[in-house]
C-alpha cells in the first residue's frame, strides 16, 4: 500500500518539478530584462523548493496505515 502511494507521490513530484522547469525556462529565455529574469527565477525557485521539500518531508512522515486502515487488509 505504501508502495502505491509512493508511486503516486513520485508522479506528483515529477509533475511539479517539470512544471517548475518550464516556468524557469520561460523566465530565463523570454524575459526582456536580465535583472527581472534573475529576480523572478530566484523568487520562484526559493519558495517552490521550500514548499516541495516540506511537502516531501510531510509525506514521508504520514502515518498511512492509520489514515487508510482498510488498505491494510488488501
Amino acid at each position: 500500500m505504501r508502495l502505491i502511494f509512493g508511486l503516486l507521490y513520485t508522479l506528483f513530484f515529477l509533475g511539479c518539478l517539470t512544471t517548475a522547469l518550464f516556468v524557469v525556462f520561460h523566465l530565463l529565455r523570454y524575459s526582456l530584462d536580465r535583472k527581472v529574469a534573475v529576480f523572478g527565477t530566484v523568487f520562484f525557485l526559493s519558495v517552490f523548493v521550500i514548499l516541495l521539500f516540506t511537502n516531501a518531508l510531510i509525506f514521508f512522515t504520514l502515518p498511512l496505515e492509520s489514515l487508510f486502515p482498510t488498505f491494510n487488509t488488501l
Binding site: 511539479c16 523572478g40 514548499l51 511537502n55 504520514l62
Partner: peptide, 27 residues
C-alpha cells in the same frame, strides 16, 4: 495527530499548486 499531518500535507500540496498556477498566470 494522524489527521493533522494529513491536513498539513493537503494544505502544503494545495499551496504548491497555487504557487505554480500563480507563476503560470504571470508567464
Amino acid at each position: 495527530p494522524a489527521n493533522q499531518a494529513f491536513f498539513l500535507f493537503a494544505q502544503n500540496t494545495f499551496l504548491i499548486f497555487l504557487w505554480l498556477y500563480g507563476f503560470l498566470v504571470w508567464v
